[in-house]
Amino acid sequence: MEKLLERLRILEQSNVITQKTKERLLHMISYLESTHSIILNEDNGGRFITHTAMAIERIERGEGFLQSQGVMEEEIRKEENFAKAQNIAEALEQNVFKLRFPLQEKYFIITNLLVLMEDL
């Protein structure tokens, strides 16, 4: 966990993310652990944290993505824990980030949650 916190400090200090984004991600880390017993660390969550941080920053700047459903999304929907991961992603959007993610970003979050849930 300490390495994840260091990652967030570096991103903030280098002005890649804002303090608000950092706080949102810290809230996400705490939420996932306390609500879903998903414990993030550098190995299982480093890329997830960085990508989510960048997605939040893009959304805050108003940079959008084309909303389309592709083969990847169709495959992800077949996963056993898809519904649970989707519910967690929606809770993160509404209760933690208070942002609406473009479809591609939401599926990235869902995919990462599915991987994390395999380790439970």
Rank of each mutant, 00 (worst) to 15 (best):
A91F: 12
R24H: 13
E73I: 11
E93A: 00
F82Q: 04
Q69E: 14
L26K: 11
P102G: 03
R47Y: 09
A91M: 13
L114W: 06
K84E: 08
T35M: 13
S14M: 13
T18L: 09
Q86I: 05
L4W: 06
S14V: 07
V96E: 12
L116I: 03
F97S: 02
G62D: 02
M1W: 11
L5T: 12
E6T: 08
I49L: 10
I39N: 12
M28K: 05
T52P: 02
M117L: 11
L66S: 06
R7V: 00
I109V: 15
L4T: 11
N81W: 02
N41Y: 08
L120F: 00
L8C: 05
I29Q: 09
Q69P: 01
L99E: 07
L25A: 09
L32N: 05
L116Q: 03
T52R: 04
L4D: 00
L11C: 08
N41F: 07
F101G: 04
E79M: 10
N87D: 15
A53Y: 07
N41H: 09
N81Q: 14
G64C: 06
E12S: 14
T111H: 06
K22L: 01
L25K: 10
S68E: 10
H27C: 04
G45N: 03
M1L: 11
K106A: 02
E74K: 15
L66Q: 10
K78L: 04
A91H: 15
E80K: 13
R24Y: 12
I38C: 09
R9Q: 09
E79H: 08
K78V: 01
A91D: 15
I29A: 01
I76Q: 05
E73V: 10
L8F: 06
Y107W: 11
R24E: 12
I88A: 07
Q104C: 02
E2W: 03
I39F: 13
Q69D: 04
I39Y: 14
K3M: 03
L25I: 15
Q69R: 10
E60T: 00
F97G: 00
A53E: 04
R24L: 10
R24C: 12
K20F: 06
Y31E: 00
I17K: 04
H27N: 15
L99G: 02
M117R: 03
M72L: 14
K106W: 08
L8A: 04
S68C: 03
E79W: 01
H36G: 01
G62P: 05
N112K: 08
Q104I: 02
G64N: 14
L103H: 12
Q19Y: 15
Q19A: 12
M1T: 15
E90Q: 15
G45M: 01
G46C: 01
L5A: 08
L120H: 09
I38M: 10
I110S: 05
V115Q: 07
T111V: 03
I110M: 06
I49V: 13
G70D: 09
D43M: 01
